[in-house]
Computed example of a mutant assay.
Amino acid sequence: MTQAIVVEGLRKKFGHREVLHGLDFAVEAGTVFGVIGPNGAGKTTTMRCLLDIIRPSAGSISVLGQHPRSAGTSLRRRIGYLPGELHLENRTTGRRTLEHFAAISGPVDPHHVNDLADRLNLDLDRQTRKLSKGNKQKLGLLQAFMHQPELLVLDEPTSGLDPLVQQVFHAMVREAVAAGATVFLSSHVLSEVQQAADAVAILRDGEIVTVSTVEALRMAAVRQLRFNSTGTAANDVGALLARVPGVANVAVRELPADGHAAGTVVATATLSGHVQPLVQELARLNLTDLVLEEPDLEEAVLTLYTGGADAEPAAGTVAAGSASSPRRAEGAHRA
């Protein structure tokens, strides 16, 4: 598969302070790539380097097969960009603003613009100074999508949008990818990225901690397990759970017979990893109740954010510093 973005050894210093510490990653063409991390992790700085808004201190960058510094406007016209902090001219309308961006990006179908505005429920003839934060964000999204670019780079794209408009945005992303575009988006909210992204990079303190699919993160996350069984002693249930890979924090107790079936055992535990081995062992028991909660992805990612002592990359991920496989992450620029 063709790589839309390739970055090697990306470093950025502001004065004596280095904020990006040798990032390596690649983004496959025709995919949605999300980068998540807390505020200040380096997401926006990375994107601005890719877009040649700021110059990296070291490293090499290729965007759509070209070097952003030397490619100039020919590359920028192939890219749609939504900055994290959108600044608009206040003394004009949304429509005039889009006409300005269209002059930079190249020909734009006015019917397509009107269709996107209708989907986003955005009045293009209102003065931009009268727009709410959410409507300004819609205008920013519209200018990024309107010329149907090959690459979309979206910094915190759903900021200020209500849930219904967020769903419209995700539909727009899916349609862009179906038409062959590559999408890079950043967020500090996992739920936003997991709805859209094929792959996810976790950025912390200017370094990529790991690159993974959402499914791999889900597999690595901890699930809470609780079940009741009858006909098997508590010690035997505990021994059975001990044989299951990924099971920990086991607590087993036998309920008093009063009000319960004789020999009712209640067990709780945590599970990380595959469910199938657990199911195979539990099939040996006479279960009367079973609860296996959805994995807590937020907690799993928070552990990676904070660098917890027990944090490990999920199976199928690429850890930061891996020399054997490039990391996949971010995007590039437009106007």
Rank of each mutant, 00 (worst) to 15 (best):
M146Y: 11
E254T: 04
D289A: 10
N249L: 11
A71W: 06
I202Y: 00
P256S: 00
K12G: 13
G134R: 06
T232P: 10
G140A: 07
S229N: 08
G246P: 12
V222M: 15
T213W: 03
A176L: 04
L10C: 03
V32Y: 14
Q280I: 14
L82A: 02
E281A: 01
L120M: 12
R91Q: 12
Q195D: 02
K43W: 06
P245E: 03
A314T: 00
T317C: 15
D155Q: 04
E18P: 05
N90H: 09
V291T: 12
V7K: 00
H100G: 08
N235Y: 14
H16N: 10
Q280H: 14
S212N: 03
A144D: 02
H188F: 01
T97W: 15
G263R: 11
L287V: 08
L10I: 13
A315Y: 00
A261D: 15
L64R: 03
H260N: 10
P277Y: 07
D123H: 10
R223M: 10
D118P: 06
A179T: 04
S229F: 06
D310E: 09
S322I: 13
L51S: 10
R334D: 02
A199R: 01
G321D: 06
L64T: 02
V27H: 01
V173R: 10
G106E: 13
V153C: 13
H100D: 09
T213K: 05
S272C: 15
A58F: 12
V27C: 00
Q127A: 06
G22P: 03
A181P: 10
G37F: 04
V200C: 07
D125P: 01
I208Q: 00
E8N: 10
P83Q: 07
E299Y: 05
L164K: 15
N39R: 02
T158L: 09
A323N: 08
V193A: 08
R96S: 13
L271S: 13
L185S: 00
T128Q: 08
A4N: 02
M146G: 03
A320R: 14
L75T: 08
G231V: 02
L255K: 11
V247K: 09
L98W: 15
E192H: 09
E312F: 01
L154Q: 00
G59S: 01
V32L: 10
T182V: 09
R95G: 01
N114Y: 14
I54D: 14
A257E: 15
R76N: 02
V7C: 01
A233C: 06
P38W: 00
A102S: 10
I53C: 09
R76Q: 04
A234W: 14
H87Q: 09
Q167A: 12
A267C: 14
R243S: 14
P83S: 07
L304D: 07
G84I: 12
Q137W: 01
I53G: 12
L161A: 12
L297G: 08
